[in-house]
Design a binder for these strands. Structure first.
Lengths: 200, 200
DNA sequence: GTCTATATACGGATAGAC
DNA sequence: GTCTATCCGTATATAGAC
């Protein structure tokens, strides 16, 4: 069972992902949700309010829907980072490089976002990189002491988003794999250099 | 002097950058270009043809408009890479993190691009990372022999795009600077490890 | 809260004279 | 090649009964 409101939000979430915000019409959403115009506007006075609800849903779901499934059976905090990247890869692979990161797509589609929207996009990015930062903190003993773990966590997000963008554009995974591979190499380098210093 | 056609393409280029493709109307373009509907449709049968012309213009301009200005007075090939990234930073800084990479924005805005459009987006990315790859080739003697220079060049593009995306979304440069800083650190690590091997 | 019908504006694109 | 006027579909949003 699900409420009408929930069906509308879920339909909007999928369509914004698939087609983007501007290319998704209210009629599309109503059709997919099996709802009527009156119901939608009862809950959401304007299309943008639906977008904010979708972004709130992504933020609420980041652990149960994204991180926890990615980390099932993975204990090592560094491996959690690459397991998350592997999940994005899998999504790309399953959809012939069509589906990427919904937040990233919306972030670049909305050129002049209302502050209400921009703040929620930013909150999603912050939550994602914060989760990575916690992995890095848990692995701090293997990393050089002077590494900026917040900066590194943002770099991991950068790697994902930049890799996804190129994969979607080229319709193949090469640039995504190349980017993740280089990030892996960087981590190897950081870990070795952390080890070197501890030996000194 | 400029032809009507050129004025239309330039107006479209700026508006697609500023507002995105869908949010730019033909009327916007006509107003900015000081042209009439009849002229525009004389040159471009449909809006999408204007987009392909814009993307072709970006591709043609990549050296004269982007790379050469960024590399003025910079000889070291590794420093050329970071000079290019600095140019994107400057653009963000000058526009309060509003203007990013026009190709990246269009790439994520067009969810189901016509093949004609997608191919041109991909060609722009390829040309950009190819230019980086040539810098890496020129610095090959300082890098480890086993580094995949094509993969690394795509990683540089990933860093730029991912950093720009976060900067625009947060409306501040922190994540861009963090990403470029981590990339710099990675290069340092590669160069040191290249040097190590040569000493062996 | 849900339904149908519809207002209203704006979009891309066209017609046809000059 | 350029001009004005306009067609026509689709978009968001609303009205008002149930």
């Amino acid at each position: 069972m699900s409420t009408t409101r929930e069906r509308i939000v879920m339909a909007a979430m999928e369509l914004f992902w698939e087609k983007g915000y501007h290319s998704t019409s209210i009629a599309d959403i109503l059709g997919k949700a099996g709802a009527n115009s009156g119901s939608l506007y009862h809950f959401f006075p304007a299309k943008q309010d639906l977008l904010t609800a979708v972004l709130d849903t992504y933020l609420e779901g980041i652990y149960p829907m994204l991180l926890e499934p990615s980390w099932e059976g993975v204990d090592d905090p560094i491996e959690k980072i690459f397991a998350l990247l592997a999940r994005y890869r899998q999504l790309l692979a399953e959809t012939e490089c069509f589906y990427g990161c919904p937040i990233g797509s919306l972030a670049l589609e909305m050129h002049e976002p209302d502050p209400v929207v921009r703040q929620r996009l930013a909150a999603n990015f912050s939550a994602w990189s914060k989760a990575i930062e916690e992995c890095l903190d848990a692995a701090a003993d293997r990393l050089p002491a002077d590494v900026d773990r917040q900066a590194l966590s943002q770099f991991v997000l950068t790697t994902m988003e930049g890799g996804v963008m190129q994969a979607r554009t080229h319709r193949n995974l090469a640039a995504f794999d190349a980017s993740v591979g280089q990030l892996r190499n960087y981590f190897r380098c950081l870990i070795e250099s952390g080890a070197d210093r501890r030996q000194e």
